[in-house]
């Protein structure tokens, strides 16, 4: 059992996300990380325009900021699922974003295509949750912490940690 087991995560979904996709994400997080997941629908009040947006792209930081407001327990984690294309200031786009070793993460379904949406969303979610446990990107293509920038790369990404990241995770969670 992973040392992450037992923590609680709230899955926060934008209104347009299908229940089947949320169920796939929730199941994948529970299986991979051993977290206890509860789902909440559309409690994020995203501004329709303004500095939170760059054209049609939403700054991930804004979602993370709103997510933080929903957390009511110190050790609780939250993951938002949005349909909008998200980005950070220095990048053209990102598929997901998380606070390293923090509590909040977001994934976007804008670039996962029309097929295998549930599987792809689940993979994005597993990866971002890894960042919440302070895991950085991994060079090993057989690791779920390998970074991806396209749907093809996402399809090739596995859902499990490699042994290096596993040992890294155990070390980090043991450290005071």
């Amino acid at each position: 059992m992973l040392p992450t087991a037992g923590r609680r995560l709230t899955l926060v979904a934008a209104a347009a996300v299908e229940p089947a996709v949320l169920a796939a994400i929730s199941g994948a997080i529970e299986r991979t990380w051993g977290l206890s997941v509860s789902t909440r629908m559309a409690p994020l009040l995203l501004p329709p325009s303004g500095p939170a947006w760059r054209g049609s792209q939403l700054f991930a930081e804004e979602v993370l900021r709103l997510l933080k407001g929903l957390l009511h327990e110190e050790r609780m984690l939250a993951l938002a699922v949005v349909r909008a294309d998200i980005t950070v200031p220095i990048m053209q786009y990102v598929m997901g974003e998380a606070e390293m070793g923090g509590s909040c993460a977001v994934i976007s379904l804008a670039r996962v295509g029309q097929d295998l949406v549930e599987e792809r969303a689940a993979k994005l979610a597993i990866h971002e949750v890894g960042h919440l446990f302070d895991l950085a990107h991994c060079d090993n293509r057989d690791c779920t912490m390998t970074p991806v920038a396209s749907v093809d790369e996402l399809d090739a990404r596995p859902t499990a940690l490699c042994r290096y990241c596993l040992s890294d995770l155990e070390y980090r969670l043991k450290a005071p």
Partner: peptide
Amino acid sequence: QKPFDPRQLW
């Protein structure tokens, strides 16, 4: 060139 394409940056 900014902003970066993630794959290009890597």
